[in-house]
């Protein structure tokens, strides 16, 4: 990922807020990041930090209003936020597609698996019905679903969770997109199936040369798949680093806390527990702390953190931290 390659997706000053009855929720607050062709970028953070909203903002899948998206989301030099709905439709599913967290609810219960894959292909590739169907069966074979010919004619309720997620992946890949936003693709599955799906994604990524933004709160998965990681906290990016550096040398106190909360077999911490947790809770988006958003939970909090927002400190090409300690 050197500076010579041009980013596929370049997000600058992205803000997504929701106008609710209780007030304005700033779910994503002024973030920037790039995604390069073919890479896997990890996006981690606790529940509610704005990971899904970021992904949905890129594809403009949020209902506006109540949502409001501002900033720039440049995909191949076009700002997606300036496209009309027709142009946006041509990007969805074809250039950028999405994998959702819940395979149980993300497939339409009244349409066959084959039809749901075929319609994506038919939509963008000018195929006839038969061609699209054959293509759908081919995609099911690609994601290693046994008996793809008969499976294509099945409805989602006949498939197990793992199978459905494979079908969802087949659907996302069916038009050979340049970028996939994978929003917790394995969270809803049990551990053995998780590993299978992850292996499948690694394999398919090589084959299709697709860039992936992998959203998860499982740092183990990130460690296996991603080359770069972005850590989010309360709507902000707090740290970005190449994968090895992040694990070796985390700089933001929040990242350190996250890494501390990965269970390591046989290693106890000072208090005799296996798992260290970050004390405190995620702040309510309606009532963000003044200064650094992490300050009420930060073990190294200083006076300044409670008054002024920390600066984004760049440390080399792909390293940055949002913290007063590094300033």
């Amino acid at each position: 990922m050197s500076s010579q390659t041009k980013p596929l997706l370049s997000i600058t000053d992205l803000k997504t807020c929701f106008h609710t009855l209780d007030g304005v929720v700033n779910a994503v607050d002024d973030i920037q990041f790039d995604v390069y062709p073919g890479e896997t970028l990890g996006l981690v953070g606790e529940s509610g930090c704005g990971k899904s909203v970021t992904a949905l903002s890129v594809l403009r899948l949020l209902r506006c209003p109540p949502a409001e998206i501002t900033g720039k989301i440049c995909f191949e030099n076009r700002n997606l936020l300036e496209l009309n709905s027709e142009e946006m439709r041509n990007i969805r599913g074809k250039d950028i597609s999405m994998i959702f967290q819940e395979p149980m609810t993300s497939l339409n219960p009244v349409l066959t698996i084959g039809e749901q894959i075929a319609e994506a292909a038919r939509n963008h590739k000018r195929m006839t019905r038969q061609e699209a169907w054959r293509w759908a069966v081919e995609m099911l074979r690609m994601v290693q679903i046994p008996g793809p010919n008969t499976r294509a004619r099945d409805y989602p309720h006949r498939l197990s969770g793992g199978m459905r997620q494979r079908a969802v992946i087949a659907m996302a890949l069916s038009c050979n997109p340049k970028l996939i936003m994978a929003d917790e693709p394995t969270t809803a599955l049990d551990v053995t199936i998780q590993a299978q799906i992850m292996n499948l994604m690694v394999h398919l990524k090589e084959e299709f040369k697709t860039a992936i933004v992998l959203i998860t709160h499982n740092l183990g998965i990130i460690a296996e798949m991603a080359s770069r990681v972005i850590v989010m906290y309360a709507g902000k990016i707090v740290e970005e680093a190449p994968i090895q550096e992040l694990f070796k040398d985390p700089r933001h106190p929040y990242t350190k806390g996250l890494l501390g909360s990965i269970p390591v077999i046989g290693r106890k911490d000072k208090t005799g527990r296996y798992l260290q947790e970050i004390p405190g809770i995620v702040p309510s988006p309606l009532d963000m702390p003044v200064g650094c958003r992490f300050n009420p939970r930060c073990p190294k909090v200083m006076d300044r953190c409670k008054k002024e927002e920390p600066p984004m400190v760049r440390q080399g090409e792909h390293r940055r931290v949002l913290c007063w300690l590094e300033a």
């Binding site: 949905l56 594809l59 899948l61 439709r89 041509n90 990007i91 969805r92 599913g93 074809k94 597609s97 999405m98 959702f100 819940e102 609810t105 993300s106 497939l107 339409n108 219960p109 319609e119 994506a120 939509n123 963008h124 969802v168 659907m171």
Partner: peptide, 13 residues
């Protein structure tokens, strides 16, 4: 529902 968002993410009309 989620499946509607999925359908939209495929670029359907």
């Amino acid at each position: 529902q989620d499946y509607t968002t999925t359908a939209r993410s495929k670029g359907l009309t």
